[in-house]
Amino acid sequence: MPQVPSDPAPAVPAPFGARVARAMAAHGPLCVGIDPHPGLLAAWGLSDDAAGLRDFSLTVIDALGGQVAALKPQSALFERHGSAGIAVLEEVVAVARSARTLTIVDAKRGDIGSTMAAYADAYLRDGSPLAGDALTVSPYLGFGSLAPALDMAHATGRGLFVLCLTSNAEGVALQHARDGDTSVAGRIALGAASANRTARDHGTLGSIGLVVGATIGDGAHEAGIDLAAVNGPLLAPGVGAQGAGGRELAAVFGAARSNVLASSSRGVLGAGPDTRGLLAAARRSADDAATALRA
């Protein structure tokens, strides 16, 4: 009897680095956070529960889906509503995918061994309802602890944004601490650069990026980090409401400015709930970021 051909294996999408580079070229270097803080819910006239959370999030996607490079739901603000909130986060990921918009799930997961593997399974595996296009992770149990997430991201064409240089005052003592001649943050940057070596050899942007606060001034230089050598996307919180403009972005990122994905939440979300207001605010923020990063 003739053999029935098996279903083809699902195609692995283009690597996240290539996809985010295309999205930034098409829509500008802006990622908008979906951050349903209680104060914002109230300002929008919404209840601080799962129903309000859902209305808020879907309004943002309705306004900005297909119009910005990426959306970044803040997982903690969904988790605070329990299982109903997690269900909304799953819906956000699915609806953003339908809108052909990259989604960075901002969960900052980090652990070791089988626990890290479980986080990778939840947030990076094909078919998982929580798996967006990229995930934020914490490397402060050692960059090697991220191996399960790195492996899963590579296998599925997804990306990671690894916390490196953050803008909180408490982070400096740890991130700038020295192990010999290299800072802790420097070792994280070296790990990301190593993970992106193949992409660099092919002249493309890697899929393992860093989180670098847009308000850290000359923090990268002080930590001995060459951000351009990382060859990955650089997610930059702090643009807009937190004070980072063109001068600050130029000082922080220097020659790596073309790889920066500026992140803005309150600066855009404060224009809601009117969808036209949200889109206008996002376009202004994207234009401002693009101008600043070209300076």
Rank of each mutant, 00 (worst) to 15 (best):
V105S: 12
V184K: 02
A185V: 08
V162Y: 00
L279T: 01
R19W: 11
S114G: 10
A193S: 13
G240R: 01
V92I: 00
V162H: 06
T198L: 13
L89S: 03
F143K: 00
D49R: 03
P237L: 07
C164W: 09
A107I: 05
S83F: 13
L261H: 13
I208V: 15
I86K: 11
A223H: 04
A51G: 08
M116V: 02
A122E: 14
F16D: 09
L160P: 00
S114T: 12
L160Q: 04
T182D: 15
G144W: 00
M24H: 05
G245K: 08
A251R: 15
G246N: 00
E248L: 05
A9G: 04
V252G: 00
A23P: 10
D179P: 05
D7M: 14
P29Y: 00
L279Q: 12
T101L: 09
D35T: 12
D133K: 11
A25W: 04
P237G: 10
V230Y: 00
E90W: 01
G217L: 05
F78E: 11
M24L: 14
G217F: 10
A70Q: 09
D287C: 07
L89Q: 07
A23Q: 03
A244N: 08
W44S: 02
A87T: 01
H27C: 13
L124E: 07
D55L: 12
A195W: 05
G82V: 09
R22L: 14
I225M: 03
G39E: 15
L278Y: 08
A117K: 13
G245I: 04
F16M: 07
R283C: 10
D179I: 09
V95W: 00
L130K: 05
P273W: 06
M152D: 07
H221M: 08
R266H: 10
G254N: 03
T204S: 14
R187I: 07
L174I: 14
L124F: 10
D111A: 14
V230H: 02
A289D: 04
S194D: 14
D7G: 04
R283W: 05
E222L: 14
G245R: 10
V172A: 14
L58G: 02
G186I: 11
T166Q: 13
G217W: 08
A193P: 02
G171D: 09
V92E: 04
S263D: 11
V252M: 06
I112D: 02
A220E: 05
A199H: 07
G209M: 09
C164L: 06
S98A: 15
G113F: 09
L279V: 01
I86R: 14
P237K: 03
A118W: 13
S6I: 01
A76V: 13
M152N: 00
G203Q: 09
C31S: 15
A223M: 12
G243I: 08
G171H: 11
T136Q: 13
L249K: 09
A84V: 02
E170G: 15
T166Y: 02
S183R: 03
G232P: 06
D274S: 15
V184M: 11
H37S: 13
A251F: 00
S57W: 08
A70V: 08
D218C: 03
E170H: 04
A99C: 13
S6L: 11
L235A: 07
V68C: 12
